[in-house]
């Protein structure tokens, strides 16, 4: 069987902590948090799962247990309540699961979603706290992985930056660029790797101390 994996920003597909099934589930959740709007810009194509995998494999090791035990609990929940694993559900059902643990997409103005401390609910379902935590963590990680510099594995081809019109890593901006009526989307997107390449080619640092670069 051939599998068409999404890719990290650097084109690699190997995993450093999550197992294959976990990665597929995480990617499916992330894609519902930031879904492709038909323009190719969603969490899966941005490689968000690789940002998450590399984060918990190396920097945020204190969150490994949230993913490992949380994803097991998610499987139990989905099989019990919906008779299929999370990745086997329709998009609408996947959204329903997220809504159940993360709260609705849109909250009423002036209310704060109550994510923790629902003691009554926790008595009924021992998995509730870890599932709530899992979805809060995945949401946070999905935003980071969608808008990070590609060096971190996500934001492949600067998909997230292009979507919102953020030009990325710049040494500076000119007076004309900061002036009225300037179309920021006309700026070429630059990453930290682009800046590092310039550093190496300009040992006198002339570029990054100059304001006039365009």
């Amino acid at each position: 069987m051939t599998v068409d994996h999404s890719k990290a920003a650097d084109g690699l597909t190997a995993l450093t902590f999550l197992n294959d099934a976990e990665a597929r589930t995480v990617e499916a959740i992330a894609e519902r948090i930031i879904p492709d709007g038909g323009d190719g810009a969603g969490a899966a194509s941005a490689g968000v799962v690789y940002y998450i995998d590399r984060s918990i494999g190396g920097v945020s090791t204190h969150l490994q247990h949230v993913y490992r035990t949380g994803l097991r609990a998610l499987d139990r929940y989905c099989l019990n309540e919906r008779s299929a694993a999370y990745i086997g559900l329709t998009a609408d059902d996947q959204d329903g699961v997220i809504r159940h643990f993360l709260g609705p997409e849109q909250t009423e103005v002036g209310t704060t979603p109550q994510l923790f401390g629902d003691e009554e609910g926790e008595r009924d379902d021992a998995d509730l706290p870890i599932l709530r935590r899992l979805f809060a963590v995945v949401r946070e990680h999905t935003i980071e992985g969608f808008f990070c510099d590609p060096v971190y594995g996500g934001n492949r081809d600067a998909i997230g930056w292009k979507l919102v019109g953020f030009p990325g890593a710049y040494w500076g901006y000119t007076a004309q660029q900061m002036g009225p009526g300037f179309d920021g989307r006309s700026l070429p997107i630059k990453t930290l790797s682009d800046l590092r390449a310039q550093l190496q080619s300009l040992p006198d640092n002339s570029t990054f101390t100059s304001n006039q670069e365009s």
Binding site: R32, I33, I34, P35, G37, A41, G42, D95, I98, L102, G103, E105, Q106, T107, V109, G110, T111, P113, R139, I143, E144, F147, C148, G160, W161, L163, V164, G165, F166, G184, R185
Partner: peptide, 29 residues
């Protein structure tokens, strides 16, 4: 930057899903 703004959105804006994505697309700049 975008991650900072994703954490400073109005309470009325969607927190996840297509609405979240579109809010960032339409309003960040």
């Amino acid at each position: 930057q975008p991650i900072e703004i994703a954490h400073a959105m109005p309470p009325s804006a969607p927190r996840w899903g297509a609405g979240f994505r579109d809010w960032m697309r339409d309003n960040y700049s």
